[in-house]
């Protein structure tokens, strides 16, 4: 069965409404509850509210960027590698970032007290994460340029992941418990740590990634036939593969640098979109993954704030706790794996 165009439209409108609702709910909920009216007045500029303007709003935007960015990069990887288990981090982006951060946090003890405090600032972690993922990525790209078989790139990505994970283990072995705890906390992910200035930088990297993904939509559909067919249709497989990988890296890399290695969203959201829209057509999937990714991230963040309490749970735990049952439920309901 194929959905009619009107069905696509009504589902999309429903999702957009849901996105707006979860956006406002996300801003409203937290250790201090804020009424909808107050949020609205603040956003249109009639009222000043420090919490909303400098904490909740950037956090909500970060959630939207992170959720959609991870979802889309997951979709790109699943199509490129023809593998429903692929996610944004299969090319070793998050493990590269982890290594960078591990070197900064865990390695700082080797540099002595004063340097340690300089090193473990927020920006040094962002830079370390970016550098780490960039270096791993560069290695993967150099290999990818020499290889014709896309599957080999997937395995090479996983191998780089193992190498970096091993290096992190070695570093942790020589570090103090305190520093390890700090590193583990980074690994939990954090959406609420960004100032407006950082959100803008995050957004500009993210925007390039989104534009590249949009440019790849047609080619991704053609790649659904397999690489040989795609080539016979005039597609330059190597070039479009390159663009798809770059887009993934910008999206997943920027999220990891600014919000930590957030798991699960990138793997699950494309599946949720495929189940809801019952298609593999990227012209439908890309926008819907964008919306659904944002919604899921906003909901997860709202839950992790534990409304009206002083505690905040790690976002990384919530994404899996909330997301996995959703995917299982969708698959059970449809009884058929759509890929």
């Amino acid at each position: 069965m194929l959905y009619k165009k009107s069905t696509y439209k009504s589902i999309t409108i429903l999702l957009i409404v849901l996105l707006c609702v979860s956006f406002f709910v996300n801003i409203g909920l937290g250790s201090v509850s804020i009424s909808l009216k107050e949020i609205f007045l603040t956003i249109i500029g009639h009222q000043e509210n420090y919490i909303i303007q400098h904490y909740r709003l950037p956090k909500a935007f970060t959630a939207v960027l992170a959720g959609s960015g991870l979802g889309i990069s997951g979709l790109l990887m699943q199509t490129l590698f023809r593998n429903p288990l692929a996610g944004p981090f299969v090319l070793g982006i998050s493990s590269g970032a982890s290594l960078g951060v591990a070197i900064v946090i865990l390695g700082s003890s080797l540099m002595g007290g004063f340097l340690a405090t300089v090193f473990i600032s927020k920006w040094s972690i962002v830079i370390a994460a970016s550098l780490g993922s960039f270096i791993v990525l560069l290695a993967v790209m150099i290999v990818a340029a020499k290889i014709r078989d896309t599957m080999a790139i997937l395995i090479i990505g996983l191998m780089f992941g193992s190498i970096t994970a091993a290096l992190v283990s070695v570093l942790s072995y020589f570090s103090s418990a305190e520093l390890i705890q700090q590193y583990v906390f980074w690994g939990f992910g954090n959406l609420g740590n960004l100032t407006w200035y950082e959100v803008v930088i995050f957004f500009s990297i993210y925007a390039v990634g989104i534009v590249l993904s949009m440019m790849s939509m047609k080619n991704l559909n053609t790649l659904l036939l397999g690489e040989n067919y795609a080539k016979s249709l005039g597609l330059n497989v190597k070039k479009s593969r390159f663009i798809i990988i770059i887009a993934t890296c910008l999206l997943a890399g920027s999220v990891t640098a600014f919000a930590g290695p957030i798991a699960f969203i990138g793997l699950a959201v494309p599946h949720i979109a495929r189940q809801i829209f019952n298609t593999s057509n990227h012209k439908i999937l890309l926008p819907s993954v964008f919306i659904i990714g944002s919604i899921v991230m906003l909901i997860c963040d709202s839950i992790s704030q534990l409304p009206s309490s002083d505690y905040t749970l790690p976002i990384n735990a919530i994404t899996s706790l909330f997301g996995a049952p959703v995917v299982i439920w969708l698959l059970l309901r449809k009884r058929k794996m759509v890929f």
């Binding site: 659904l224 040989n228 019952n278």
Partner: peptide, 9 residues
């Protein structure tokens, strides 16, 4: 060769 996805109309 078989096409990658069969979830297209």
């Amino acid at each position: 060769e078989r096409i990658v996805t069969k979830n297209l109309s």
